[in-house]
Amino acid sequence: MTTRIFDGRRRVDAIAADGRGVAYGDGLFETMRVHRGTVPWWDAHWARLQHGAQRLHLRLPEPRQVREEAADLFANDDSANDRGGVLKLIVTRGGGGRGYAPPAAAEPSWLLSRYPVPVAVADGLRARWCETRLASQPLLAGIKHCNRLEQVLARAECIEAGVDEGLMRDLDGNVVSATSANLFVFRDGRWLTPLLDRCGVAGVCRAQLLPALQAREARLDTAALEAADAVFLCNAVRGILPLARLGARAWPAHPAIAAARVALARRHPAFALDVEHP
């Protein structure tokens, strides 16, 4: 991992001791797939970041500087023959002393980090239903804010159970997402994906696939998902990840998922490898 830290426009050596991101999770983040030194979905990620900043009344750094620093971070990227890299951007409200009240004119703090692409799962994911539930908070629904304790607890469940991923529900039992991915369900010849108006993250990859698959947003319960003909998870780093097993329920490879991967590859060149080597 390589990381650069900034206070406003100025590069610094460390996060400030009074940083609100550390103290309260008062910030946002984006995790992006890099392909041959570029971020093909940059505009979509920045638009979601702006939307989140409006919700939180949080200042963003100057977009041109962020993009130039990101490009420089991958300037020596030699990914023409591999799966590229991952760029993570964290933006917080900056320093503000003790107490919840946000400072009136804080300079944003932000970090850029470079990571390798996660290892692909060859035969589909094994998942479980998580006991940890997602609380409803419409003001935060959809945005990628820095408070992810629910996902941390759910991910710990997955590690303990020895599975690849966990599916999460809200307090009413509605299916929302996986711990780090959105999900799509294929039933009766069409794709469905959960509504995210109460909780959950509206993923950039999900936004690309909604029109591509002519998918419909809907409330889904556990029975609806387990009765599906096919299920996949998706995010902007790993693309489409077929679900192979959920408890006792198993799904074989399905042509609708293969078609979805082709549709995604048309929108992001890094995911063409998933079509060539599923």
Rank of each mutant, 00 (worst) to 15 (best):
T2N: 15
T3C: 09
D7I: 02
A14R: 15
A16K: 05
Y24F: 15
G25H: 06
D26G: 06
L28S: 08
L28K: 04
T31N: 01
T31Q: 02
R33M: 06
R36V: 00
W41N: 01
W42D: 00
H45D: 04
A47L: 05
R48Q: 15
R48S: 14
R48M: 12
G52P: 07
A53M: 04
L60F: 07
L73V: 02
N76Q: 13
S79Q: 13
S79E: 04
A80I: 09
R83G: 05
R83K: 09
G84S: 10
G85V: 04
G94D: 15
G95W: 13
G97I: 09
P102T: 00
A106N: 12
W110K: 10
D123L: 08
R128D: 09
E131C: 02
Q137V: 01
L139K: 10
A141K: 02
K144F: 09
C146E: 08
E150V: 03
A156K: 15
E160I: 01
A161P: 08
G162Q: 14
D164M: 14
D164F: 11
G166K: 09
G166I: 05
L171D: 03
D172C: 06
A178H: 14
A178P: 10
L183T: 13
L183S: 11
V185S: 01
D188Q: 15
R190C: 10
R190W: 02
W191N: 14
P194I: 00
L195E: 02
D197I: 03
A202D: 14
R206K: 12
A207R: 15
A215T: 07
A218M: 13
D221L: 06
V231Q: 04
N235D: 06
L241Q: 15
P242A: 11
A244F: 01
A258R: 11
A259M: 06
R266F: 07
A270Q: 13
